[in-house]
């Protein structure tokens, strides 16, 4: 079995791939953070009370500007690079992770809408790594961190599965066709293929419902059953990336798998 630090290294590496892609994607659409864009700072700022002083107001303008977003994205990549290069658990690593976490939190404040589950999971994973890996950490807290990541992943899958189980649209299989029949999350060829195949729709829906709902069992089942869940998960996220364009989910969620494997081994 790998050591806990080796597990954290894997978790961080996979998460870093996703975060890098995501950061570069934001860089590609940075004009949407201009005053005219969907991520306009002018609108995002409305969440907060208007400052009384014009100097503070001017500072807020700068902090919510497109230029500030560019700076945040560049600093993010630098902090991430430093975290990957620094010896895991060292003071330098902790400093890099502190900058990275602050950056993520600041970027979350900057964006009003548009976050998805992959952003949430990536933030959870990286904050946990920051809290649990460093000069301050003991074996106990490292273990707690891996448990936390594994449990959050299991909560995610189980919540998604149970929410589908209580949905008539999902139980009937109609949800599968309905989602694939949209330009936002579907594909015309997938919609055409599924349209006249209600049996397949139902099968696909139920396999997602069952595996997601039962996913927490991967923590307690003996091999290879635990691995079967992870294999399904990886293929599921790959399919979501290919058909639905949800590319970031693959990296965000598979980043939790090393933690799941470790926790499962300790339970076993």
């Amino acid at each position: 079995m790998h050591s806990m630090l080796q597990v954290y290294e894997l978790v961080l590496l996979v998460s870093a791939v996703g975060l890098t892609i995501s950061t570069l994607e934001f860089w590609a659409i940075v004009p949407t953070f201009s005053p005219a864009g969907v991520h306009s700072g002018t609108i995002t700022r409305l969440r907060f009370r208007a400052p009384r002083s014009s100097r503070l107001d001017s500072l807020m303008d700068r902090l919510f500007s497109e230029q500030a977003v560019r700076a945040l994205l560049i600093l993010r990549l630098m902090a991430l690079g430093l975290a990957l290069l620094a010896p895991l658990g060292s003071a330098l690593f902790s400093a890099a992770m502190t900058l990275l976490v602050l950056n993520i939190l600041a970027f979350n404040v900057r964006r009003l809408l548009g976050d998805d589950g992959s952003d949430q999971m990536t933030a959870i994973v990286l904050i946990t790594v920051w809290l649990c890996v460093g000069p301050h950490s003991t074996a106990f807290i490292q273990l707690i961190g891996l448990w936390f990541i594994a449990l959050q992943a299991c909560l995610s899958y189980a919540s998604a599965g149970i929410a589908k189980l209580i949905s008539p649209e999902w139980r009937s299989g109609r949800a599968i066709f309905g989602i694939f029949n949209t330009t936002t999350y579907g594909h015309e060829w997938a919609a055409k293929f599924l349209r006249e195949r209600p049996g397949l729709q139902k099968f696909l829906a139920w396999q997602v419902i069952v595996v997601e709902s039962l996913f927490p069992l991967c923590l307690v089942l003996p091999e290879p059953w635990g691995w079967a869940f992870l294999g399904w998960g990886a293929l599921f996220h790959l399919q979501c990336a290919a058909i639905m364009g949800l590319n970031s989910f693959f990296w965000a969620f598979t980043a939790t798998y090393p933690a799941i494997v470790y926790v499962s081994a300790t339970v076993g």
Binding site: A160, S167, G178, T182
Partner: peptide, 12 residues
């Protein structure tokens, strides 16, 4: 986190 993706009301 809100993990209930596309459910119980899937966007169609």
């Amino acid at each position: 986190p809100l993990w209930t993706f596309f459910a119980p009301n899937p966007g169609q």
